[in-house]
């Protein structure tokens, strides 16, 4: 296989990953690293570097639309980015010292957990909507647009959300993923922010989080242009296509199929890590 064929196949695979990821809401990044490692035989470190870059592209692209529609809570995003970027730096430094076999196992486990978090039915939150003093002090409360006009909401659980965001950032820096599932969990369940605001604000933060570790990866030589270029362009095109058909498609069965693919890939990553075939 020469470089042209390699780049085109990689772009094609990444387009499919981005398309399915955005269509199902599970994120294109989650299957990229397993796809690169298991199918294309790319070294784990290059795969993680390329995945980080594609995560920045898709999240920034999608965030530009969500921010304009007024769903994202920019203050919540900015505040929590202090935690995610610090975590990302820690994760990126840690990545240099963790052997790729252990990374593969950790990746597989995190993949299983985030698939579970994304696919399980959401629990209803307790209806206690008193203002929280810390959130008020930080002016985190917001409103989101609905057909019947803006709906106001209060933000809670600021310290807890902050801590989980640090962990989300660390996983992002260590594994090259967006950690979207964990970020949404922190905002939706701990901080009790409306779901649509949580998902779009998570998306808004992912780019900055990934940029914090991408600078370190780049300077360490983990970002190979031959791998990163087709992956970045492919995922970007794929997720744009996915966003276009999202409104019309029935995604329930697709989520299940894609979820099954994720589980198989996760188990394969764990097996490879344990039996030393990365």
């Amino acid at each position: 296989m020469n470089l042209t064929e390699f780049a085109l196949l990689l772009a094609l695979g990444s387009t499919a990953a981005g398309f399915l990821g955005s269509l199902t809401g599970l994120g294109g990044g989650v299957v990229l690293v397993p796809l690169l490692v298991l199918v294309f035989g790319v070294d784990m470190r290059y795969a993680i570097g390329a995945s980080l870059i594609s995560v920045i592209a898709t999240s920034s692209g999608a965030a530009s639309a969500f921010v304009k529609q007024g769903f994202s809570n920019v203050r919540v995003g900015m505040f929590l980015e202090m935690a995610t970027t610090t975590g990302a730096v820690a994760g990126a430094f840690l990545a240099a010292y963790v052997p790729t076999q252990s990374l593969a196992v950790v990746f597989g486990v995190v993949l299983l957990i985030s698939a579970y978090l994304s696919l399980r039915p959401r629990r209803a939150r307790p209806e206690d909507d008193k203002p929280n003093w810390l959130a008020t002090r930080l002016r985190l409360d917001g409103a989101y647009p609905t057909p019947d006009g803006p709906v106001n909401y209060h933000v809670h659980g600021v310290p807890g959300g902050f801590v989980v965001m640090f962990i989300a950032g660390a996983l992002s820096g260590l594994l090259g993923i967006g950690s979207g599932a964990l970020k949404v969990l922190a905002m939706d369940q701990i901080m009790r922010i409306p779901f649509k605001v949580s998902t779009t604000t998570s998306n808004f933060m992912i780019g900055v989080t990934a940029a914090a570790s991408a600078g370190i990866y780049l300077q360490r030589g983990y970002i190979d242009p031959v791998v990163a270029m087709p992956v970045m362009l492919g995922v970007l095109v794929g997720s744009l296509l996915g966003a276009m058909v999202l409104v019309r498609a029935k995604v329930r069965w697709l989520r299940l199929v894609f979820g099954a693919v994720i589980v198989i890939m996760a188990l394969q990553m764990i097996a490879n890590g344990i039996f030393g075939r990365t």
């Binding site: 296989m1 020469n2 784990m44 290059y46």
Partner: peptide, 13 residues
């Protein structure tokens, strides 16, 4: 375009 990619081996850029 016709050279061989070598990304299965990590060497650092």
């Amino acid at each position: 375009g016709s050279s061989k990619p070598h990304d299965e081996v990590f060497s650092g850029e």
